[in-house]
């Protein structure tokens, strides 16, 4: 999923090195519009919904955190469907 996510995010922000950046939010590499666009793309691609506490600086600060977030959302979806 990691590679898939990097590909997806890079299509939205081609100038960002998602593989290596460790402080996407703390170093203001992603601005407000980029963050909202990324959330939108994830939501659409994985058919998941965000709640307010999913959308936090620490859940989007680097690619590994984003992977964890998406996995959490998928698990939540699976358990609510099952």
């Amino acid at each position: 999923m990691r590679e898939e996510l990097i590909k997806l995010l890079s299509s939205i922000c081609p100038e960002v090195d998602f593989e290596n950046e460790k402080a996407l939010i703390d170093d203001a590499i992603l601005d407000s519009h980029a963050v909202l666009s990324i959330l939108a793309a994830i939501s659409e691609t994985y058919d998941v919904e965000f709640e307010a506490d999913d959308v936090m600086p620490e859940t989007l600060n680097d690619i590994d955190s984003i992977c964890t977030l998406v996995q959490t959302l998928l698990d939540r979806k699976a358990s609510s469907n099952g």
Binding site: I25, A28, L30, D31, S32, A52, D53, V55
Partner: peptide, 10 residues
């Protein structure tokens, strides 16, 4: 801080 405006709960 400007970055908080992307994170409603924050």
């Amino acid at each position: 801080p400007t970055r908080f405006f992307s994170f409603p709960l924050k």
